[in-house]
Design a protein around this nucleic acid. Structure first.
Lengths: 252, 252
DNA sequence: CGCTTCTGCGTAGACCATACGCAGAACTAG
DNA sequence: CTAGTTCTGCGTATGGTCTACGCAGAAGCG
């Protein structure tokens, strides 16, 4: 029973997510499954948003009592972590034949964006610790694999992935914010950006915020342009930056 | 009293943050100040973390009753928004003489990083709407101003700023997560990264996560290298990407 | 058939945000 | 000076949250 003190504590629920869990030969059969609980929570978040996910609500969805969940999950935060992991799902398959890192990373980024689009609440989950769950690490691995063959060092690859996922997640967060603001104001989603622009224009003094007003005056925010174009632009900039480095490494 | 229905609703507390608030000639003098409340909340978050910031706790800190705060703030979320705005503070002064956009944006990014370092809880605040507060927009304006003179279009400038702030914020989030995990496990901050690496190595099967294991095997995560170097690397990559675009625009 | 061990879950405690409404302060109009 | 108005502070109360604890009973082992 002595916990190996040289290793950091690992939550049992996460261990179970990795498939390593001493199953008990004694006692009654568990009536619930960790996977089932997480799936129910994910479905609930998809349908009614993250605030609807409370322990009692998830339990009710499963026909169980609130406290029953705590036999499978140490705390709510663990459930949230596992929800995120489940919502990410399997990472995109590595690009089959083409060893082009750029198309690979691009596919990867679009896949993450798609996952975040399907489960917009992911970016709202307050995360307390670095990624340790299977799918999460699977995505990281899939991304790193795209960088094989480039002359980048391992830490550099890691930094590139951080850069990439930062961008995708933050873009998704902003999109989700706009969407929420839209439906909070009862507006159709297409009209929220212009409304936001008008609000900023009214609040911010042109003398104190000249560059901001230049953007507004240009009408850049009036038209509700394709969010995909927006995303593509940033992604291209980012990959251009990586490409500069790759060229320097392969040339050296 | 008819609210102009063509404009979206603007929370009174945010209006007050912009300095436009019809002060009441009647009634008793307010005993509290919105600025004072926000300052107390910020101080509390700095000292004890974001979870310590509850309405009752902030009120106690001010020697007032809980419900007194609701005369100044419509909901807790508004208080959080204003806390973030206050914590950001004034944006860095635009680079004096040098019209080099790159050093300007670099200074900007380092300044944001410094702000997030001083108030690590910022990245933990769940934000529900796009930025509308004075300092927040001030930072945006300051960043956009760095891009004057480059041939970028206004939407392009906006995208660049989104890209940049995404990176800075996400890097800060990851740092904060590592730090939290460190002190939750009772470890000194320097030892948390290697511990994390060892955990991943133990959980993830090398066959299923080859690229991840390559990183671990390289020892990239063992040494607790200077986080500033890490940050600089990503920032350089990002600015390289922007530079490619700027060159294309000025050449065209 | 006990003994052990584990599950489900009822109860209860400590918080939390906040809707509502009242007492009284500060000002204006007469 | 007085009455009216308006706003502040805040006490009370409601309905929600997470979760610590402990008990009843199921399932298997010796």
């Amino acid at each position: 029973m002595e916990p190996t003190a040289d290793e950091p504590t690992i939550p049992p629920a996460i261990a179970e997510a990795w498939g390593l869990r001493g199953r008990a030969p004694k006692g009654p059969r568990p009536g619930l499954t960790l996977g089932g609980i997480v799936a129910a929570a994910v479905a609930l978040a998809d349908a009614e948003g993250l605030p609807a996910v409370s322990m009692s609500r998830v339990a009710k969805e499963l026909g169980a009592a609130t406290m029953a969940l705590y036999r499978y999950v140490g705390a709510k935060e663990e459930l949230l972590t596992l929800m995120v992991d489940a919502a990410y799902g399997e990472p995109p398959a590595p690009a089959g034949s083409g060893p082009d890192w750029r198309v690979g990373l691009s596919r990867w980024a679009w896949a993450e964006r798609e996952a975040l689009r399907r489960h917009p609440w992911i970016v709202r989950v307050p995360i307390g610790s670095p990624p340790l769950t299977p799918h999460q690490l699977g995505w990281l691995d899939a991304g790193l694999r795209c960088l094989d063959g480039t002359g980048l060092t391992e830490p550099e690859k890691m930094s590139v992935m951080l850069l990439l996922t930062s961008y995708v997640r933050n873009e998704a967060l902003l999109t989700a914010q706009l969407l929420d603001a839209a439906q909070a104001a009862g507006r159709e989603p297409g009209a929220v950006m212009p409304a936001y622009a008008r609000l900023v224009a009214r609040l911010a003094d042109p003398a104190r915020f000249p560059a901001l007003h230049a953007v507004l005056a240009s009408g850049a925010l009036d038209s509700d342009d394709d969010p995909d174009d927006e995303f593509t632009f940033g992604l291209d900039r980012l990959l251009d930056g990586v490409e500069t480095l790759v060229r320097a490494r392969t040339a050296g």
